[in-house]
């Protein structure tokens, strides 16, 4: 056998080798993305801790109403959207297209609701004078910089997730995409929920005045 033929055989052999994780390549790719993204959010939250711990004074602008109450409602909405996403994945694996669309539709609605509540909160803070470089309470500007950066990156993930779920849902309804695609998108959505489980206590609950 020639060298080139052996090389081709070797390549085919490795391509046919089953995944040691027994999951599809797209699901593994999503897991690798999630790990990298978790490191990004972890780095940002550590930076927040570093700057807060290293600051002589720190502004704690939040009160129960509207900030914490709004944050709690947002948390419940995001957690519930994870539940509806699980319903969508289960229905997709069972081949129930109509039920899948309903569950995914509910997830999109909850994601949009979360984004609207977040943007409403941001708008109120902007009107109070908060920005990336301004603190209306007269202290360090670091709180605004960190709050808007971290929640902004998370909000970007939520909006991306809403778009992704919508696209996947339409593709699944038309038969172009499989239940595996729905499940992989679900992994991403649960990760967005998981990140919020750190953002809410660290950025909201620890900044009560």
């Amino acid at each position: 056998m020639s060298d080139s033929a052996m090389t081709v055989n070797a390549m085919h052999g490795s391509a046919m080798e089953p995944s040691p994780f027994l999951i599809s390549s797209k699901k593994l790719t999503m897991w690798l993305f999630i790990v990298a993204d978790a490191a990004t959010f972890g780095g940002l939250l550590f930076a927040y801790g570093f700057l807060r711990f290293g600051s002589a004074s720190w502004t704690r602008p939040f009160s129960f109403s509207p900030n914490i109450l709004n944050g709690l409602v947002m948390t419940v909405i995001l957690l519930t959207s994870s539940l509806t996403m699980l319903g969508g994945v289960a229905a997709a694996h069972d081949g129930r297209r109509s039920a899948t669309m309903k569950w995914l539709g509910a997830t999109v609605v909850l994601g949009v609701l979360f984004a609207i509540l977040h943007l409403r909160e941001w708008t109120a803070m902007f009107h109070e004078g908060w920005s990336l470089t301004a603190n209306p309470m007269g202290g360090t500007v670091l709180f605004g910089a960190l709050f808007f950066s971290i929640t902004g990156l998370h909000l970007l993930h939520v909006i991306s997730g809403v778009v992704a779920i919508s696209v996947i849902a339409l593709g699944f309804r038309s038969g172009r995409l499989s239940a595996g695609h729905v499940e992989t998108t679900g992994l991403y959505w649960h990760f967005v929920d998981l990140v919020w489980m750190f953002v809410f206590p660290l950025l909201y609950l620890l900044n009560l005045h």
Binding site: F46, G49, F50, L51, F53, G54, S55, A56
Partner: peptide, 9 residues
């Protein structure tokens, strides 16, 4: 990094 954060303070 915490040690450096404490040092800054």
């Amino acid at each position: 990094f915490w040690a450096d954060s404490s040092r800054l303070n």
